[in-house]
Design a protein around this nucleic acid. Structure first.
Length: 825
RNA sequence: GCCGGAAUGGCGGAAUGGUAGACGCACACGACUCAAAAUCGUGCGCCCAUUGCGGGCGUGUGGGUUCAAGUCCCACUUCCGGCACCA
């Protein structure tokens, strides 16, 4: 019979679905394992050969664990809210739900073509109201703890996308989505207080010993903790300037003070200056720079605030105050002491204004520093911080998470706004009171106080995304939802917390729904928990289910070090504080996935058209060969270029397995060749170890080696089955087909991983190389574990060795049994 | 600039401090065939010698430790990734 994957692959995919082969139940007595893929967003662009690599790897791992008796949770779902899906929908001129639905269908077909064994009964979709009601529910936990606030702060505004973006959404100074320019603007936004968790997010990285160092380092850098001092410079205007520095010992060399153009402080100093107009012009000018332009700046610019000076609290010198946009209002105090001699940036600004650069530290000792001359850096630090009454401060580069988007396609906030303190207090006395933060979230509009009030969990069904006629971004602070009166204007019953369209009770008060939506990252910040308990109506997930399944044992996917993986850890910690989970970190082990590159080594991109579709490959060589090649191409965590030539090797391997299987069945011999048997068992061991450690490339090559060793000798059917079993996770279709041909009626994927027979592995003899002065001159076959003495004798008797040794004196002989003999002359 | 990671044949890559280049691809030659494809077999780091063995060099560069280094240590080069006016 011909090897025809195109026939049996589809057949088995259907059969597995019908038989629920991959269905997982909660709560078993067996060991269990949660293997998680980063779920995709089903965008319009179709898959290329790089996408399935991670899915194939976790599929292999899951099958392996299942065959080893584990109850395996290996689910899949869709991250479908947010800009990618919405932008696609706008391009296609259709409603986002349609886009999402169609793309999910397409993606699912593609995943199934690969023979991936997901438990589809646990499929999730972040845009499903049944799902996002729980995202909203978890947001309430943030709100209640004062971690979700509404504040005016400088944020990234992207005109083209018509929305603000988080720092994590900005790549190389442009929007990650679309590469549009971004401006810094103060705006009122929903903020999640991730900085309050910064220490835990850094410190708990030490718990993650099964995470790649690379990812942990990226997170440490991104969070960017620094420890320094905060203290004040007095000014001739009577307004103190508070500054933050990590090098207080350089204070004697501080010859000017620099303030950020967009800070409040600058506003105040400007009023007492003699060049207010010049300063205002500079402020306007720098506010018009995009983030990219700011970053690209090579030469420092700024304006001296004339008519005002600051006093260096150590030297008592009067020093100039400069406004310059290299100082950021969003970091530290928005003002710095500039020490030109010991900081490159300060040196640049000093050059522009001809300001003195005074070296105050040489070889770790203070110089040109009056009373401090000769003191060490350490001593100076203590003396100075006492003298200026400095406070020790920790600062972080990470900013609080700007969490609102002026877009349609996201989770609505479970928040309504009410007017007036009296109304707020009335609401606080009702059931809503239990969900209010200590400090009210509010702002003042036209002189009237607006208070944020949470929508209770039991009324979240009233906060579903409405059907709208137009969902295009409006380009204003209000999202598209603001245009729908029936969405915005509602009534809140303070005695129950109920939200209604009409005033249904006399005491109901008017309220306005929040019109911004949550960002793309919201739904993906907790989704792994939902897989554990997909049908739960009341809660995001039950405590029992998370006690059983959590934490995730293996999380595999592409590099999302600074966005998703920080957000996910942050949400997890808040959920921990809310008592929803008991453990500190969501993902025990993280496996980082390398990309598949185009054949020329460049990145695969739609524009270049340098990719191949998985369907294409499957139609040519079959899904099994495709899977094998994706694993064989190189180490899992390393990127590697795609090669159609290389793909052929996997296909040939499977064809040879197929032929061998036919001859094994036909010959039906009773005993297997001893060397072949040993090879099979060695390979069982090797492949098992390699799967456990995600070394799929060497697992595949060891099976190729094994095939080379067994294909021309007698193999009994029973022993050949072992070979088929270890191949099954990699090539699920062909192995299932052979398994059934060999008489089984149930799936090979529900069978047991073969046991290694150590006694057949054990070799009787071994080849030992003999070196003279470290160069291999001969080798001898000797029985395993031959004692040193005998080995030495045999080595010295060897003809080739004798030839090399003639006329020389042996100094020393080093013998490592079963390994090597090294003769020194 | 800071923080990671990497560097091995024509290519992807393999190697608990112990025979570098497994496995696969490409290539060459041979078998089968009228022929081709497929398949099977042999060879395949570089240089010298090939009438026979063989010999020298070799894992980015320079040094070091060791009987023995791709692997450990020191210094450097290049490339890739991340962060970046964060005081």
């Amino acid at each position: 019979m011909q090897f025809s994957p195109e026939i049996f692959e589809k057949k088995w995919q259907q059969k597995w679905q019908e038989d629920n082969v991959y269905r997982t139940e909660n709560f078993t007595d067996t060991p269990h394992c949660f293997v998680l893929d980063m779920f995709p967003y089903p965008s319009g662009s179709s898959m290329h050969v790089g996408h399935p690599r991670g899915y194939v790897a976790t599929d292999i791992y899951s099958r392996f664990k299942r065959m080893n008796g584990f109850n395996v949770l290996h689910p899949m779902g869709w991250d479908a809210f947010g800009l990618p899906a919405e932008e696609t929908a706008i391009e296609n001129k259709e409603y986002p739900t349609e886009t999402v639905e169609r793309n999910i269908k397409k993606f699912k077909i593609q995943l199934n073509m690969l023979g991936l064994g997901y438990d589809w009964s646990r499929e999730i979709n972040t845009t499903d109201p049944e799902y996002y009601v729980h995202t909203q529910r978890i947001f309430l936990e943030f709100f209640k703890r004062g971690l979700a606030t509404n504040k005016t702060i400088p944020v990234n505004w992207c005109e083209e996308l018509g929305t603000v973006l988080a720092n994590e959404d900005i790549v190389d100074g442009k929007s990650e989505r679309g590469g549009h320019p971004v401006f810094q603007k103060p705006m009122r936004q929903w903020i999640l207080a991730i900085t309050k968790y910064a220490d835990r997010l850094i410190d708990d990285l030490d718990l993650l010993d099964q995470w790649p160092e690379k990812i942990k380092n990226a997170q440490r850098n991104w969070i960017g903790r620094s420890e320094g001092h905060e203290f004040s410079f007095s000014t001739s205007a009577g307004i103190p300037i508070s500054i933050y520095t990590t090098k207080i010992e350089t204070l004697p060399g501080a010859t000017c003070v620099v303030v950020a153009p967009d800070g409040e402080l600058t506003e105040q100093l400007l009023a007492t200056s003699t060049n207010a107009q010049q300063i205002k012009n500079y402020i306007t000018q720098s506010s018009q720079k995009t983030t990219l332009e700011r970053q690209a700046v090579t030469e420092k610019t700024g304006v001296i605030i004339e008519g005002v000076t600051a006093t260096n609290p150590f030297t008592k010198e009067q020093i100039p105050i400069i406004v310059s946009d290299y100082v950021l209002s969003s970091y530290g105090t928005g003002a710095i002491m500039a020490v030109p001699a010991h900081d490159e940036r300060d040196s640049e600004i000093a050059k522009v204004f001809n300001i003195e650069s005074r070296t105050v530290i040489e070889h770790d000792v203070l110089v040109h520093a009056h009373a401090l001359n000769g003191k060490t850096v350490e001593e100076a630090r203590t003396i100075l911080s006492d003298m200026v009454d400095a406070k020790k401060q920790k600062r972080y580069k990470i900013r609080d998470w700007v969490f609102s988007r002026q877009r349609f396609w996201g989770e609505p906030f479970p928040i309504v706004w009410i007017e007036g303190k009296n109304n707020y207090e009335l609401v606080a006395q009702g059931p809503v009171g239990a969900w209010l933060p200590k400090e009210a979230v509010m702002y003042i509009h036209d002189g009237k106080e607006q208070y944020a009030v949470p929508v209770l969990p039991e009324f979240l069904h009233t906060m579903q995304l409405p059907k709208v006629a137009s969902y295009q971004p409006t380009g204003t602070l209000e999202g598209p939802l603001a245009g729908i009166d029936t969405w915005v204007n509602v009534f809140l019953d303070p005695t129950t917390g109920a939200i209604s369209q009409n005033k249904e009770t006399t005491h109901a008060i008017p309220a306005r729904r929040e019109t911004n939506t949550m960002p793309q990252w919201a739904g993906s910040s907790w989704y792994w928990f939902r897989y554990m308990d997909t049908k739960n109506k009341e809660l995001p997930f039950s405590k029992q289910s998370v006690d059983y399944w959590g934490p995730v044992h293996i999380y595999a996917g592409a590099d999302h070090a600074v966005a998703h993986l920080i957000y996910a850890r942050f949400w997890h910690k808040v959920m921990q504080d809310a008592g929803m989970v008991d453990f500190p970190e969501p993902f025990t082990r993280l496996e980082f996935l390398g990309y598949i590159l185009a054949p020329d080594g460049s990145k695969i991109s739609k524009r270049k058209g340098n990719s191949r579709s998985p369907e294409d490959v499957i139609n040519t060589v079959g899904a099994d060969a495709f899977r094998m090649y994706e694993m064989f191409i190189g180490p899992f965590e390393k990127s590697a270029p795609w090669s159609d030539d290389g793909l052929v090797g996997s296909r040939r391997f499977l064809e040879r397995v197929w032929r061998l299987h036919e001859s094994v069945v036909e010959k039906n011999v009773a005993t297997t060749d001893a060397h072949a048997l040993s090879s099979i068992h060695k390979t069982i061991q090797k492949v098992g170890n390699d799967i456990e450690t995600f070394k799929f490339n060497t697992a595949v090559s060891s099976m190729m080696i094994c095939l080379n060793e067994i294909q021309d000798v007698d193999i009994a059917v029973a022993d050949f089955k072992h070979f088929i079993s270890i191949l099954a996770p990699f090539a699920p279709h062909i192995t299932e087909e052979m398994w059934h041909v060999m008489g089984h009626t149930s799936s090979i994927h529900l069978s047991t991983w073969p046991t290694v027979n150590k006694s057949v592995i054990r070799q009787e003899s071994i080849t030992v190389p003999i070196q003279i002065n470290g160069k291999v001159r001969s080798q001898i076959d000797v029985p395993m574990d031959m004692p040193e003495k005998e080995l030495e004798t045999l080595a010295l008797e060897d003809a080739a060795i004798q030839k090399h040794l003639s006329g020389k004196t042996t100094q020393k002989i080093i013998i490592v049994p079963n390994r090597i003999v090294n003769i020194l002359v």
